[in-house]
Nucleic acid binder design. Structure first.
Lengths: 239, 239
DNA sequence: CAGTGGTCTAGACCACGAA
DNA sequence: TCGTGGTCTAGACCACTGC
């Protein structure tokens, strides 16, 4: 683990153990330099990392401060393809595989993964539950040329860890798409909602570090649970 | 304008004028160093900026490459409180003020802006159109202690430019919240949709660079137009 | 093993906020 | 004016990709 990542983690821990709240100040850069015995750039890089994650904000001439918590019940839109973060404050989150097969890519899937139509892909279907209520139905496609082997056991755990640790793949960046529609009859019956009720469709295309897309996830979410937040940064403020 | 920002802009322009596509390589860092006559760190900072904006991705040992374009009809979720980016490829985007007044903050607004209940705030209501169709209804609240004067003329233009350039305020970071619901009768009639049809509610709390919230926007969007994308980065990939 | 991105350093100098 | 964050430099050294 790199120095600046490690320092970022420790500062994050510092904020937790001191129960710092929105607006509380964390030690100044000079202090952190002598505490961690690294150069100024390294400290700034660590703090920038925390700023990008929405944990602190830095004010020139004044200091570095803790950024506020988010409304209850909202989930980080950027973090996972899941519907809810699984932390101790929220009710437990459950995921079940309801099917895994090798299929031929339909046009949408082929486009997302940059493949020829009818190429072989793994298809894995999940249902996500929260307190026995259906939250989200997800279908995930993996490019079989890249992930040559997959089974139900691997798919039940963290596939991405398998890809990283066992296959040695390097995960890069996701493209995320959001749109709205009405539930069809099949979806409505699974969610226990009515036909025509709102639903949110969240599609994610994951790329390897090399830029090649390898995973396409399409999730349909129960509108009552589809609550998300994003902590923007300076970049996102150019109105 | 800072060196690294300027260089980032020029590289962005370079990509445009050379019509570079997904996966195309841009000049290596050494080349950019001698071209712009700056240090390596400055070039890397410029490229990191472009990477954060989702314009390029960098692969160690290999090079820096252009990141792909996004599906048509989808809008950047992070960029504005508006519903659609106003570029030449999309149909023109129109915004109309339908009311401006000074009101007392109701609890939701007071919480968002960190004010006492019943504090004075500006309320500005907009309707956003796309090709004569109603896209989005937005109500924006400004803390009157920070923005002491506002009028309809200013509110019709870019308020944020007014805040930056005339009032000298420094804009910081936004908190963005997304949730779904059904249209009520009033909303349905404005959109020309049916009661109970889906809608997306997008709330944004804008903070000054000092961390103080100064603006709270609540927008209700036509579900047929509520199509968004986000270009994630490495950070967003820890599944 | 050459080419390329990435980390880290030490230090000069700048820009901004608060007193 | 002083404390604090931010830019920029020059260069050493490291880590990964692809030939």
């Amino acid at each position: 683990m790199l120095k600046y990542q490690k320092i970022a983690l420790e500062i994050e821990k510092y904020i937790t153990v001191h129960s710092l709240k929105q607006g509380d100040k964390i030690p100044v850069i000079e202090t952190l330099i002598s505490q961690y015995k690294v150069s100024k750039s390294t400290i700034i890089k660590a703090l920038n990392l925390l700023e990008d994650k929405g944990i602190v904000f830095m004010v020139r001439g004044s200091g570095t401060f803790v950024r506020g918590q988010i409304r209850k019940g909202y989930n980080n839109l950027l973090l996972t393809q899941d519907c809810r973060e699984d932390d101790s404050k929220n009710p437990p989150f459950l995921r079940k595989i309801i099917g895994m097969e090798i299929v031929r890519a339909i046009p949408d899937v082929a486009t997302a993964l940059g493949l020829e139509e009818d190429s072989k892909v793994y298809s894995v279907r999940y249902v996500h539950y929260i307190e026995k209520q259906v939250l989200c139905m997800e279908q995930v496609f993996y490019n079989k040329n890249i992930i040559s082997y997959l089974d139900k056991e691997i798919a039940s755990e963290s596939i991405f860890n398998y890809l990283k640790n066992i296959l040695g793949l390097k995960i890069g960046f996701p493209d995320i798409y959001i749109n709205l529609d009405k539930l069809n009859s099949e979806e409505a019956s699974i969610f226990g909602l009515n036909i025509g009720d709102p639903m949110l469709c969240k599609e994610i295309i994951y790329h390897l570090a090399s830029g090649q897309p390898f995973c396409y996830s399409r999730a349909v979410l129960n509108y009552k649970q589809a609550k998300f937040f994003i902590k923007g940064n300076r970049l996102n403020s150019y109105i």
